[in-house]
């Protein structure tokens, strides 16, 4: 089995991936809703911006994050003023990188499921006396749950696999920013660590597979017209 240090790496990866995805969840849903239903100038531009991390070299995304969150950068200054600290070299920074890289996948899946919601059901709800907010809460949101779940899990898997943006943005600090992929990369630089690399790689596969299976099962439940979660 894994050594204590290796469990630490797994736990750190799960924490960074989990926090990244949970914080991004409402942002991703709001963006997905806006892109699915909104009609406003600049929509194509917003769509492009959201998808940028998917197509940019991750190193570039990491470097842009570094510019923004450095102590002299625009966001870095705000964070320092509010908390007196920085996200650089910290697990919080790794979570930001993971979240930004996961965002496009989350938005895509959620947007598709919002677009798939039958607008006629929403009109029916309106004629039954429900205002816009109640229609959103009781019809649109529950019916787009399969996409929200799929997007969240996909984003979580992507966050766990994040490498390029993380190492550029917050470096490779053990116990802070050294997630599974970064730890595997570090071990590969040292001769005679094949067993460690193997164990960490197996853990990566196990976690990713578990996430995908869980999302598939939840989506099937939703497909049967049952409540999810």
């Amino acid at each position: 089995m894994l050594t204590g240090a290796e469990w630490g790496i797994v736990a750190l990866s799960l924490r960074i991936g989990g926090v990244a995805v949970l914080v991004m969840l409402p942002i991703a849903f709001a963006l997905a809703y806006l892109l699915a239903r909104g009609r406003f100038p600049g929509k194509i531009l917003l769509d492009g911006l959201v998808h940028l991390p998917l197509v940019l070299p991750p190193v570039v995304t990491g470097w842009l994050l570094l510019l923004a969150f450095a102590p002299t950068g625009p966001l870095g200054r705000i964070i320092e003023a509010l908390t007196g600290g920085t996200v650089l070299f910290r697990w919080t920074g790794a979570a930001i990188a993971a979240g930004v890289m996961a965002l496009p996948l989350m938005v895509r899946a959620m947007r598709l499921s919002i677009e798939a919601v039958d607008r006629q059901l929403e009109s029916a709800a309106r004629t039954l006396g429900a205002g816009r907010w109640r229609v959103f809460r009781t019809v649109t949101l529950p019916l787009s749950v399969p996409g929200v779940v799929a997007g969240t899990v996909l984003g979580f898997a992507r966050a766990l696999g994040e490498f390029g943006a993380t190492i550029t943005f917050v470096s490779n600090v053990p116990d802070q920013t050294q997630t599974l992929p970064l730890a595997i990369y570090s071990q590969l630089q040292i001769p005679g660590t094949d067993a460690t690399v193997f164990r960490l790689a197996v853990m990566s596969v196990v976690i990713a597979l578990a996430a995908l299976v869980a999302s598939e099962m939840l989506a099937r439940r939703a497909g049967r017209g049952q409540h999810v979660l």
């Binding site: 006629q120 009109s123 029916a124």
Partner: peptide, 10 residues
């Protein structure tokens, strides 16, 4: 009452 039932599937 619409042409299709439009019941909420969930």
């Amino acid at each position: 009452v619409f042409q299709e039932p439009r019941l909420f599937p969930h």
